[in-house]
């Protein structure tokens, strides 16, 4: 994004930064156990391409599925993918995208046992601003909802989807709380999250053995 460089243009700069804000559904998808997998590859003397392929297949398939659900992939960060959805999309669709993502890697014959592909996912909703610093990314959400979503991802377990109270409120605005609860069977939890204090959130174990 091209921004004015002269100090006289500071008010316009601030206006352009603050003005480019929107409510979005946020999605962090993380590949579980990739650091351990890389270490195993190194220990066993396997070439780097082994873990690279695994990680890239994960990221590419995840990005493709997010796009199928009309999500917008912002970037990948190592073995993690960050995407957002416009709030015109039904929140249940965002949740279904997350569930599909986890089920998508099930029974993947090339990756079984220790190399199994498993994801953990966090979903949030909130006001975000455009923090894009390059023209190839038109909107790169930044804001406290993004921070919280990233923190929630850190507490998620393998094959688990965690989401915030704000996201739950958005779902319950469209679906009755009883039907949502009976359909997905989520559990309430709370945890001290770094920089955010004690935070209540909800989790769904997406894959049942």
């Amino acid at each position: 994004m091209k921004r004015p460089q002269s100090i006289e243009l500071l008010p316009q700069l601030i206006e352009s930064l603050i003005g480019d804000a929107r409510e979005t559904f946020l999605l962090f998808v993380d590949l579980c156990g990739s650091a351990e997998y890389k270490l195993n590859c190194t220990t066993q003397g396997l070439p780097d391409i082994t873990w690279m392929l695994r990680q890239m297949i994960f990221l590419q398939r995840t990005a493709a599925l997010v796009k199928q659900y009309n999500g917008i992939v912002v970037k990948t960060i190592g073995d993690e993918l960050f995407a957002y959805f416009e709030t015109t999309i039904h929140p249940e669709q965002v949740l279904n995208c997350a569930l599909d993502l986890i089920h998508n890697f099930e029974n993947w014959k090339a990756y079984q046992g220790k190399s199994k592909l498993e994801a953990k996912i966090s979903i949030d909703l909130g006001l975000t601003y455009n923090g894009s610093i390059q023209s190839s990314v038109p909107f790169d959400p930044i804001g406290s909802a993004v921070d919280r979503c990233a923190r929630l991802n850190a507490v998620a377990q393998n094959n688990e989807i965690v989401f915030s109270e704000d996201f739950l409120a958005a779902v319950e605005a469209k679906l009755s709380p009883q039907s949502f609860k009976s359909k997905y069977g989520f559990k309430a939890r709370s945890r001290n999250l770094k920089g955010l204090g004690k935070t209540k959130f909800y989790s769904i174990l997406a894959k049942q053995e």
Binding site: L65, Q68, L99, N104, N107, Y184, I204
Partner: peptide
């Protein structure tokens, strides 16, 4: 059908995947 990623099983209920 779930193995082919055509269905998903969540909370003891079946539903379609996008595939």
């Amino acid at each position: 059908a779930k193995r082919k990623a055509l269905l998903k099983y969540v909370n003891n209920f079946w539903s379609l995947t996008i595939t």
